[in-house]
């Protein structure tokens, strides 16, 4: 990406570019009930338990301190200064491009590029479609975090949910459970013979979500992945026969792979689906997350709310001015 920001660049960003208007409404709405945390030296957030009475106090703090990173709690507290009297918390999905278990780009480990960031956007769009279309959750915000995306959900039911419910919803949305395949025969006289359905034969509900996620994964395999339960020979065959999935010819795909090995794929893909999202973040009800509008100093990009999730381009909307100026300087030096 754009490398680490210097102290001078951070100061320039917060004094000249950062604007109160960049803070999303869902952040400013109940600001005094949130905890803020700051990382001043690039070693992790160590300045915690900060509270701001209103956005203007936050503005003054950011302008004077120009932190390496700024965070805000997903939780609302009656007493945020001591993280006491938890009231509710956003429900979050964290998809980090550098941690995707299947990446179609050639990035080095721990790095991100335009391609895997694009892939992350596709993944969060799929997740939002499920959260919104299937589960009917409201008040969903998408944030570009600098190296991936945060889906921040302020649906009242989910904000009051405990970790267990958050985990159950996560598994559903991620496609982290192999769908049920055996159903009792509704005819009492045939009760001994169950119906069996492969996930791809049921085009509705959770089966469809799981099938869509598996298809996406398979279509993005490069062939050098190490996935538990899938050996190199199986991986090679998946890539060889995945063209059948372009037309959703799952039966032909499965037929060429073989039923036992197909079963291995299904189980492995449920694990991949879970690993695509940082599950710890989703079940946490007290976590702090990067503050939208702040600077991700490690990669010199802005953390911004995404207005149009279908065609958001982080290189258009999330690059701070000082990065462009760096380029101008480089050009000037070269001349």
């Amino acid at each position: 990406m754009f490398g680490k920001s210097s102290v001078k660049e951070r100061k320039q960003f917060y004094r000249e570019e950062w604007n109160l208007k960049d803070l999303p409404d869902f952040i400013t709405d109940e600001l005094p009930r949130r905890e803020f945390g700051f990382d001043h030296y690039g070693r992790g957030p160590n300045d915690r338990y900060k509270v701001f009475k209103n956005p203007d106090f936050l503005r003054r703090f950011l302008k004077s301190k120009s932190p390496f990173a700024a965070y805000i709690s997903i939780a609302y507290y009656r007493n945020p200064r001591s993280r006491e009297d938890w009231q509710k918390a956003e429900y979050v999905f964290d998809v980090d491009a550098k941690d995707l278990p299947i990446r179609s780009c050639s990035c080095d480990e721990g790095e991100v590029c335009e391609e895997c960031l694009g892939q992350s956007l596709e993944i969060v769009n799929n997740l939002i479609d499920t959260l919104d279309g299937d589960l009917g959750l409201k008040n969903i915000h998408l944030i570009y975090s600098g190296r991936g995306y945060h889906i921040r959900i302020l649906d009242e039911d989910m904000m009051l949910a405990d970790s267990d419910l958050r985990g159950e919803v996560l598994k559903y949305v991620a496609g982290a459970t192999v769908p049920k395949s055996s159903y009792p025969n509704p005819d009492p006289s045939m009760a001994a013979s169950n119906f069996n359905f492969q996930h791809f034969t049921l085009p509705i509900g959770y089966h469809k979500i799981f099938t869509d996620r598996v298809k996406y994964n398979i279509q993005h395999l490069k062939g050098n992945e190490k996935i538990d339960g899938i050996n190199p020979k199986l991986l090679k065959d998946i890539i060889k026969f995945r063209h059948f999935l372009d037309e959703d010819a799952w039966g032909l795909f499965k037929g060429n792979i073989g039923p036992r090995r197909y079963n291995n794929i299904v189980n492995a893909m449920a694990n991949v689906n879970l690993a695509t999202i940082d599950a710890k973040v989703s079940i946490d009800i007290k976590r702090i997350l990067r503050l939208p509008s702040s600077l991700h100093s490690k990669v010199s990009m802005k953390c911004v709310e995404v207005e149009n999730r279908e065609n958001f381009d982080p290189f258009k909307y999330a690059v701070p001015k000082f990065v462009h100026e760096r380029k101008d300087e480089e050009v000037a030096v070269k001349k």
Binding site: G136, E168, K171, Y172, P179
Partner: peptide
Amino acid sequence: ISSKKLSLTDLLIDNG
């Protein structure tokens, strides 16, 4: 669902 007595994945859910 939270107490895992019923699984979300076993329910047929559409538009919430």
